[in-house]
């Protein structure tokens, strides 16, 4: 295979698979946060910031995948 084509495929696979985990994780976090707000709507101001912060942490692996993809595309 042409190395350039292999690079493109590799970058696509890296981001594609790396996005699965964060997707599931963020879905769970958002679902639980919304359930909590539904249970106690007055606490939404306290829940929302932590929801975003934990989502950002769940996103980490996705970001690592993106870093790898960018490295494959632009550096190697």
């Amino acid at each position: 295979m042409d190395p350039e084509a292999a690079k493109l495929i590799a970058a696509g696979i890296a981001v594609g698979f790396g996005a699965i985990g964060p997707g599931i994780g963020e879905g769970i976090i958002a679902g639980r946060a919304l359930a909590a707000i539904g249970r106690n709507p007055e606490a939404s101001n306290k829940i929302m910031p932590f929801m975003f912060a934990t989502m950002a942490i769940a996103e980490s692996t996705g970001i690592y995948a993106l870093v790898i993809a960018l490295l494959i595309l632009f550096v190697f």
Binding site: A56, S60, L66, V67
Partner: peptide, 14 residues
């Protein structure tokens, strides 16, 4: 260092 910086950079660049 990596996750914090690439989170912001990656999101904006993407």
């Amino acid at each position: 260092v990596i996750s914090l910086s690439f989170r912001l950079f990656g999101n904006m660049f993407a």
